[in-house]
Design a protein around this nucleic acid. Structure first.
Length: 378
RNA sequence: GGACGGGUGGGUGAGUGGCUAAAACCAGCAGACUGUAAAUCUGCCGCUCCUUGCGGGCUACGGAGGUUCGAAUCCUCCCCCGUCCA
């Protein structure tokens, strides 16, 4: 078995430090996954990701199915080979696009009918299809197709999304296992996704139903989509308390730098978020002192590095003044350097969190981050 | 010397009698961004006053006069700039 999840150390909080073994390397958890939707982490080459120490990245079923097409990627040796990424890959199912492309899709019992955001063509993404696409891509971890809804949501809508997500998870699980076994040993893991909006009882119901299907890992979806951070924590904690200790838990799509330790303290092992990469492209840099909006005039003559505490190659070499200039000039290098720094910052937060687990320092780390980010930039 | 064309807010540049403090874009200033339709989007961008309101006052479309209830827009003269002819 090339997959395994082992817990190395626990904490006074529900936090755990562990290892996730995959055919593409062993991942130290808790782990942050940079988002590379279309088989590219915007602004970073695979060499840069290696330098940064990324062990697991996220790619997207919906986007790669539309372009360049999963069959093409299969033909070219799978996603790892196609994009020349030696580390592990988790593929999202397209469930988030049910939410983000709400104007371009229709959810039915069968699946989701999308109108392509690229050319307007129509596509039906079913739980089975999403599983097949991910098997073709050959990611290490595949996600089931789920129905992600915006919060706050009316209860009836949340109930329907839970029901649908459970049904789809069952279909996806069966199809994934049968389809996978046909090609010899299954070289991928598949995770289920708990839904239920901000209703604790629906979340519990969703978790229980999915646990019966016996997935190797479980995700908490549909959070950080509009509700306050305290609610996100409350719901995520509610769900993790029901999940098996020995399986990885993945909180999807989070979070801000100062929130990450909070999620870890709830027992979360995996997270992904576009924030470090997107904010970087938009000139928002994360530092140990808080956010730096590098386009601000105040940095025009600032010769200091982005973050004096940061060991990344950008902070060792370039000044705030130069970064600001690159953004003002619209140079593509601005996005590249900023992304490099932000991703380093996120991965470094996770390194510090892994260190803190077991020493009882997690809460201290978390409150320090909240304090710095409340105060604003240096 | 002559003939045309043109001078608009930091820039480019719409506007050819009232709905114009004056389009749009750029620059500038500030903000947002959480399983990426995002190198995107939003707000402000003449000065000033206050009871901050789809509020008041002032200044403004090269300059000076004029026509008109009303002018960036029409008329006269002047000053600049461009092209062409001598």
């Amino acid at each position: 078995m090339s997959f395994a999840f082992e817990i190395e150390k626990t904490d006074p909080t529900p936090a755990r430090r562990g290892r996730l073994r995959t055919p593409h390397g062993t991942i130290a958890t808790p782990v942050f996954m940079p988002v590379g939707t279309a088989a590219a982490v915007k602004g970073l080459t695979q060499e840069a990701l290696e330098e940064l120490g990324a062990s697991l990245i996220l790619a997207n079923t919906y986007h790669l199915y539309l372009r360049p097409g999963h069959e093409l990627i299969r033909k070219l040796g799978g996603l790892h080979h196609f994009m020349s990424w030696r580390g592990a890959i988790l593929t999202d199912s397209g469930g988030y696009q049910v939410f983000s492309l709400s104007g371009l899709r229709k959810v039915t019992e069968d699946g989701v009918r999308f109108r392509s955001h690229l050319d307007g063509s129509e596509h039906l993404l079913t739980p089975e299809k999403a599983a097949e696409v991910q098997l073709a891509l050959g990611s290490d971890i595949a996600m089931v197709l789920d129905e992600c809804i915006a919060t706050p949501a009316p209860r009836e809508l949340a109930e329907a999304a839970v029901k649908r997500t459970t049904e789809w998870a069952g279909r996806a699980r069966t199809h994934f296992l049968e389809y996978g076994k046909r090609n010899g040993e299954l070289a991928q893991w598949q995770f289920a996704i708990v839904q239920g909006a901000t209703f604790p009882d629906l979340r519990r119901q969703s978790a229980r139903q999915l646990l019966e299907l016996d997935f190797p890992g479980y995700a908490v979806g549909g959070l950080a989509v509009g509700e306050p951070h305290a609610v996100t924590c409350e719901i995520a904690g509610e769900v993790t308390s029901l999940l098996p200790q020995d399986r990885p838990r993945y909180l999807m799509g989070v979070g801000r730098p100062e929130q990450i330790a909070d999620y870890v303290a709830l027992g979360i092992d995996m997270m992904d978020c576009v924030l470090p990469t997107r904010a970087a492209r938009h000139a928002c840099l994360y530092t140990s002192e808080g956010r730096v909006l590098i386009k601000n005039a105040r940095y025009a003559q600032d010769q200091r590095p982005i973050d004096a505490q940061c060991a990344c190659s950008v902070c060792r070499r370039y000044s705030r003044a130069y970064l600001r200039h690159l953004f003002a000039a619209g140079e593509i290098t601005a996005a590249i350097l900023a992304t490099h720094h932000n991703v380093h910052f996120y991965l470094d937060i996770m390194r510090q969190i892994r260190e803190a687990i077991g020493f009882g320092n997690l809460a201290k780390f978390s409150s320090a981050m909240h304090a710095r980010y409340a105060e604003g930039p240096a």
